[in-house]
Design a protein around this nucleic acid. Sequence first.
DNA 1: AATTGTAAGCGCTTACAATT
DNA 2: AATTGTAAGCGCTTACAATT
Lengths: 351, 351
Amino acid sequence: MGLTIYDIAREAGVSIATVSRVFNNSPRVAPHTRKRVLEVARRLGYQPHVSAQSLARRQAQTVAAIVPMLTNYFFVEVLRGLQDRLAETNFDLLVYAAPTLSDVDAHLERALQRGRSAGVMIFSTPMSPERVERLQRSRQPVVLVDSFHPDFDSVSIDNEQGGYLAARHLLEHGYRRIGLLMAHPDSVPARERRHGYERALREAGLEPDPDLIVASTDPHNHGYTEEGGYEAMKQLLERTPRPEAVFVVSDIMALGALRAVEEAGLRVPDDLGLIGFDDLRVSRFLGLSTLRQPMYEMGKLAAEKLLRRIAELELPVTSTVFAPRLICRRTCAPGARDGQPETAALSQNQT
Amino acid sequence: MGLTIYDIAREAGVSIATVSRVFNNSPRVAPHTRKRVLEVARRLGYQPHVSAQSLARRQAQTVAAIVPMLTNYFFVEVLRGLQDRLAETNFDLLVYAAPTLSDVDAHLERALQRGRSAGVMIFSTPMSPERVERLQRSRQPVVLVDSFHPDFDSVSIDNEQGGYLAARHLLEHGYRRIGLLMAHPDSVPARERRHGYERALREAGLEPDPDLIVASTDPHNHGYTEEGGYEAMKQLLERTPRPEAVFVVSDIMALGALRAVEEAGLRVPDDLGLIGFDDLRVSRFLGLSTLRQPMYEMGKLAAEKLLRRIAELELPVTSTVFAPRLICRRTCAPGARDGQPETAALSQNQT
DNA sequence: AATTGTAAGCGCTTACAATT
DNA sequence: AATTGTAAGCGCTTACAATT
């Protein structure tokens, strides 16, 4: 209760400046003084008051993460990465979990309030000119994750390359007529993935067929939903001739797509090859081939970059691009099985 | 930069006390004064400084949530509930995401530091005497979620009743020889669920058979893992005669259990009925029958209770128990199918 | 040179006094 | 009575001065 630096100073027979120096690991304290102060502090159970420190240091002892909860798995993995890096510091983590992208701005306003945090990390959020302006006006350290803008540090994934790897993987398995399930056409990552897909097809001498590209029309989460994938796949399966394989731009959509395939009485991968993007936890369980984003590492690096910029605001801007990794399971190898035990799932006998 | 209450006061021709009153919605300000101050503040882009407010008000403008990330889904749902309630207040959320239960104490120390937060919520953490003592010494508002102690407000789920409902559901489908897959025997929720299971059996005139109860031996997460469920189910399937149905105390374990059933060449629910506990997102997809915890509501109520106690520390302690809800899918109705479209999954033809 | 102390300042809130 | 202002205080950090 209310134990302050004055109580410790009095009890230890020193000034409050000395107590402060001890707790800030200043070298300008004699060893025996330091020892005495720490002893008294421990005996009385003293802890520095964080709000007072924040005010006096002109720096909050927190950093903020604004994370749209677009997919649970992404969210949790990223958080793990952040947490692990921050645990090594004195910064604690303010989390602004935005249910959808349109909630981001309200949370941003709070996160940017003066004295709230020493810096902010913004995840998977398109950088509109208004947001950029707001961030710059705040004069705060900012790191973007899963998005890009030349004026801010960023950590992202090579979506174009991911789309390329996905399509090429299907091509290598002998599929030729390869469809694409898009999220909302405005989604920047989805568009980049599409470009990679098109590049791979052209490289293989195939012209992308607009008839085999269907976008999710679910208004939620930019179309990244199970329902969106389900509806889009139903449409795609009506094309004649049917596609032999499909690249779905996100695993959550692929779950819905799988259901549509089931209902059409088709078997994966024998009748239709499939590959997703994200590597959700459930993807492993279902044996869904996909491209994994190193989410944990992205979170960790985001924290690292932010800490660096907090320490030194005038650092040059850097952007880091991670390569997605192909995870080959059994939804894209007709007649084959990769044999990984984690790919087993509940047997079904529906048609 | 560094616009303070003094700048606004000067510009508006009032004292800093008046500016402060305006921003604190004090009724003791004349309407025209309020208007002028707000105008000036908006024009200059003034925001109150949160750290300074925290110090002067003797109350941090944050609340802390200590959440072991035992299962992603639980974690994310709870967070949604917290966030939704807190968005209506001026408190922001500090998240301490503990990868395992043993990380909780380190995070607790930080969350309880003076001036850090106005109160803490602790999730799914057994209340050892040491933790209780530490919390009481902090003199901070505390709410427990998914655990219980008579000295603190709490929000939890009726695990005994859940276990009872699970077993009774299996009994009603005609299963008699019903096994139980336990987590680590020390896990309080798992023990309560077991008691419910035993009560249901006895009520049906059956004596629980210790031979049909197998615990997960995975040292991680108190046994609540896919691997733990897999190993335990393998053992259980070796019993003769084999159980006709199994209640698994958590869905994450049920995933592993399903794999073991698959590998044994058995079909669910025809050869073996199964019911879990939690209702993870993947459970819906796999058609796993289970008991759902109202996680979102628990998060929301936890925030509510904490806010109330922050406002009034000497309130009487309350504990709220939520009833789990039976979610009947297709893993426990032999020969039957519940026909919900969301139960579809990837077809498999392994044995 | 090494160590310690004094005092101002961080940006608010609010009790109390003063004014209308 | 309604409105406003003065000044102390929240608990630290740190420049600068003082001491050994």
